[in-house]
Design a binder for these strands. Structure first.
Length: 269
DNA sequence: ATATCCACCTGGCGGC
DNA sequence: TGCCGCCAGGTGGATA
């Protein structure tokens, strides 16, 4: 569910309700997500949220004493609900706010995480992260440099959060289709022009997905219960063996890094 | 150092 | 209806 556009959508969705709100209580129903939820998370109770932002696929809720670091894994989602709403299966944690709302994390597979750090961005999981794909830092000069010497498929490279953050399996497949680059191409052999096209395509795809509120495949919902609408624009993801929207050739698929990869052998060189 | 795999989980689907 | 195998939006860490 959650690549950059989905996390950003959630981030913007909860902001107006939670910014400047005091956290009254943090209730933990399941301690073990990907990692155990650290006890220091409770330091955040009775403190006020001063910023809500996204970094890569992490959502960062910062109060006067530290930052709650949320990751949604594969199946996680957040919901903004009236306090005391009946709990659903796989609701693991909730933040209760003074305005009567509570923010709940539901994650069937528990690949997600809730962590704490005193200083925002200094957490060891955040430090090695690469540039944001929609920032100016993510440009063809940077990409060419970053891919130098790495012998691996370009799709794996753009899903590597050290090279660039926020791109998961859906948007990697889609971006490479738009860029007309075969996902299996060796990343260090891309020309400067191809790097430029790839950068441009990534930005186009992510921006379009953001406008659409993300992609809903199974159960992704924004925190206000709205689905995303980007799935109607998917050109290759989930369409293996179906005709290419551009040329009609049946789309190829294989696995790269254990992830389904789909491309058009005719359009993507 | 770098590239490849596995592991962590639950749920939904297709096939028998 | 039921059971089985496979697949799924991610990624740290073990292994070669």
């Amino acid at each position: 569910m959650p690549e950059l556009p989905e996390v950003e959508t959630i981030c913007q969705g909860i902001k107006p309700f939670l910014l400047d709100q005091k956290i009254i209580q943090i209730n933990i129903f399941t301690k073990n997500l990907r990692w155990p939820i650290p006890d220091e998370i409770q330091l955040l109770t009775q403190t006020k949220i001063i910023s809500i932002q996204r970094r890569a696929k992490y959502l960062l809720l910062t109060t006067t004493v530290g930052t709650a670091i949320l990751h949604l894994g594969m199946s996680g989602y957040l919901q903004l609900l009236p306090h005391n709403t009946i709990r659903k299966k796989h609701d693991h944690v909730e933040f209760v706010f003074e305005n009567g709302f509570c923010l709940r994390l539901n994650d069937a597979r528990r690949f997600g995480a809730l962590l704490f750090h005193k200083t925002i961005f200094e957490h060891p999981l955040l430090k090695p992260l690469g540039p944001e794909p929609l920032s100016k830092n993510f440009n063809s000069h940077y990409l060419k440099q970053a891919l130098k010497g790495k012998v691996r498929a370009v799709k794996l490279a753009i899903m590597d959060q050290v090279i660039v953050v926020g791109i998961g399996n859906i948007y990697a497949n889609e971006s490479l289709f738009i860029a007309k680059i075969n996902p299996n191409r060796q990343s260090n052999l891309l020309s400067k022009i191809e790097c430029r096209n790839l950068i441009k395509s990534v930005k186009i795809v992510l921006e379009k997905a953001l406008q659409s509120g993300g992609t809903t495949l199974k159960d992704f919902k924004n925190s206000n219960g709205k689905p995303g609408y980007f799935q109607q624009y998917l050109k290759v993801y989930g369409r293996e063996q179906q005709p290419c929207v551009t040329c009609g050739t049946l789309l190829c698929s294989n696995r790269l890094g254990q992830r389904q990869t789909i491309w058009c052998n005719h359009c993507q060189i």
